[in-house]
Structures are given as structure tokens and as C-alpha cells.
Amino acid sequence: MTICPTNSDHLVGIQCSDVRVAFADGTLGLDGLSADFAPGEITAILGPSGCGKSTLLRAVAGLVPVDCGQILFDGGCVAERRSDLAFVFQDAALLPWRTARENVQLPLELTGRLASHQYNSAVTQQLRQVTLTEEDEKKRPDQLSGGMRMRVSLARALVTEPSVLLLDEPFAALDELLRTRLGVLLHSLWQSRRRTVLFVTHNIAEAILLSHQILVMASGKVVERVANPLPFPRDANCRCQRAFGEVYSDLAVRLAEAQR
């Protein structure tokens, strides 16, 4: 067994080689997918619906079994590293009977990563990082707006200080303005503490603004890998840069091809 460091400052790379995931009905979620996710980098994953983007994230998280191939963390360990990742779901997936604060606290209770007397400060820190106030944290999910729910979900994902963050279309249900705001928030969170991020989205501009590399998927495979030439830090103004336009056009063409 390979022992992996669990130090929160340790950056983790992920290597997928020839990964195949088949569902119970015989359809293929992933069909021989190979991809490298560099330590501490953000990878955006684009592709048409049903191409296997979410399945890839679920396979990395160990939520679906891999039939063939392998997914390695830091070139060796699998199961150990998987306890050091967090997942943000499209629908926020908050427990409706818990307040925002109690939702953020949940991973600490489940993992036992901190002693219970340390919960308060860790949770408060994450809630403030995602700009939720003392008043907001006492509300239950049905009393929060869509954007606030997603921020609670982000805080919950970050509270265990994971090395790998998996985001499955987290902003898909939000309006354009809120998407941009939360994109900027996600970017600043990544800058304050670097971690390996896999980010599934349908939005090309969002993918370019947030990522180091962009993967285009089709039929369970990666059909295009685009290294993002835009320098960090980025803001909404970088949409005016020539490089942004070039990458956008290139990705739009690739996506159109993938959808055929």
C-alpha cells in the first residue's frame, strides 16, 4: 500500500489512464478516458450533455466503480487520497433540517478531522470566506437564495481543507450575474489556498476565466485538451483580450464537433 501525505498544503495530481465506467444498463459512462490533472491547477471540463463529465468526477471521487483502467492520486495511492477530497453538487445538496452553519459543520462531524471544540472556529472561518454573515448562517436552506445555498455548499466543501475539489456544474442553476460573482469568489478561494480543482461546466466563458486547462469531452472520452494561455490573476475584463476570443472560438468549434 502506498502511503500518501495528508498534509493540507500538499498539492495532489490526478492521473486517469484508460478509465472505463459501464452502467447497469450496459451504456458506457466513460470509454477509455485518459487525462492528467496537474497538482494545484484548475481544470474545466466541457462537453455536451451525457458525454460523461459528471461520471468522470464521480469516478475520481470513488462514487462509481471503475471497470477498467485506473485513477491514481500522486501517481500511486487511490483510496487514501480519496478521503482528502470534496465534492460540490449542482443542486447544492444541503440538509434541509440543518442551518447553514450546521450544514458547513457536517463534513467535520463525518470525518472526525477536527475535535468538536474546534468546529466553531473552522466553520466560522469558511462561512466568512464565502461572505455569509452571522445572520445568514442561522437560516435553513429553504430560507436562503440560490446563490447563498451554493456559497454554503462551497464553504462545506472547503471546511475540511481538501487537496482536491470536484465541482459538478455548481453555478448552472444561477443567473449570469450570480455566476460571474461566484466564479470570482471561487477564483479568490483558490488563490488563497491552492488545490487541484476539477470543474464541470457548460459555459465556455466560465471555463476560460477559471481554468489552467480545458478538456472537451465527447462519448466518454477526452477529445481535446486546451492549455489556457491567459495569465493569472484574471478578472471579467480579460474577456476583452485577444487570447480569450481565440480560445473561445476554438472551444466553440470543438464543442460543436463533439455534439455531432
Partner: peptide
Amino acid sequence: IDPSLQELFQVYRSNRWAMLRKLRIP
């Protein structure tokens, strides 16, 4: 159980008892 909530508990390697107490019963 909402599949996303179930997956959330699986991501944190929650044991059967914790899932029962903190998710299924509520």
C-alpha cells in the same frame, strides 16, 4: 434519499451508523 445527499455522505466515507443517524432518520 436524495441521491446527491447520499453521495455527499459517501464522499466523506461516512459509516452506516452516521448515515442512518444524520441522514436517513431525519
